[in-house]
Design a protein around this nucleic acid. Structure first.
Lengths: 113, 113
DNA sequence: GTGTTAGTTAGCCGTATGGCTAAGCATGAA
DNA sequence: TTCATGCTTAGCCATACGGCTAACTAACAC
């Protein structure tokens, strides 16, 4: 389709993996270095690094290096476009419901005449 | 990680494709047969069918066949787990902010004594 | 400096994804 | 019955994904 929302695809794709979601949940509680994020996953460091880079590319986390330790932190506002899309989607749906409701009302009115 | 939320992964993955999102947006306005959904995408029918089956597996749409026409309709409540996850995520984050705030307040209090 | 710790890079491997064509099946119209 | 329509299935192809090992670099600790 080549839509003009590459970020949404990046975001949803980043969120589609349980490991990445668990990392985000962990980071919601506060920043953490790579190794600490890796430990509970049971995955090797390079694998986790890849997940982190997916998250960072999507803008969901930000990282900074202090000495040899890279600290990762969540970027909560990155989820805004996701919420916005959900809201828009719901708005269209509800709008349609309203119009359908109106239509049914009109039908019933006509019938009772 | 083998988390116990296969649906969330399915949902996010289904939403990660612009074609599938555009199909959902179209369906939010009302049900439509497969061919009509395919037209604006510029994709071949089998390709669109695959997208539809991804959406259906994720529970985002429901389909029913009448004669040789398969009608697709949106399942709005399918997005609830997504919203819930976002809310939980935000809750953890805000909780942390509150605790941090509290901590800073305490520090300032101690300093002014 | 030697060694350990924390990341990082490169590259392999099997599977999944997203596109396609070609061919098949079922229904409705003529 | 024949034909067009609307979907469906099978299967090919290139690329992307998610895991891994091995080897390398950059601190910090002795």
């Amino acid at each position: 389709m080549a839509k003009h929302e590459p970020d949404l695809s990046l975001l949803f794709h980043a969120l589609a993996d349980p490991t990445r979601r668990s990392i985000l949940t962990r980071l919601a509680e506060g920043p953490a270095p790579v190794t600490e994020l890796a430990r509970p996953t049971g995955l090797r460091l390079p694998t986790v690094m890849r997940h982190l880079s997916v998250l960072e590319t999507a803008g969901l986390i930000a990282t900074s290096k202090d000495g040899r330790v890279r600290s990762c932190a969540i970027v909560p506002e990155a989820l805004v476009p996701v919420r916005t899309w959900l809201d828009e989607q719901r708005a269209i749906w509800e709008d349609r419901l309203d119009r359908m409701d109106e239509y049914v009302m009109k039908l019933m009115e006509e019938r009772t005449q």
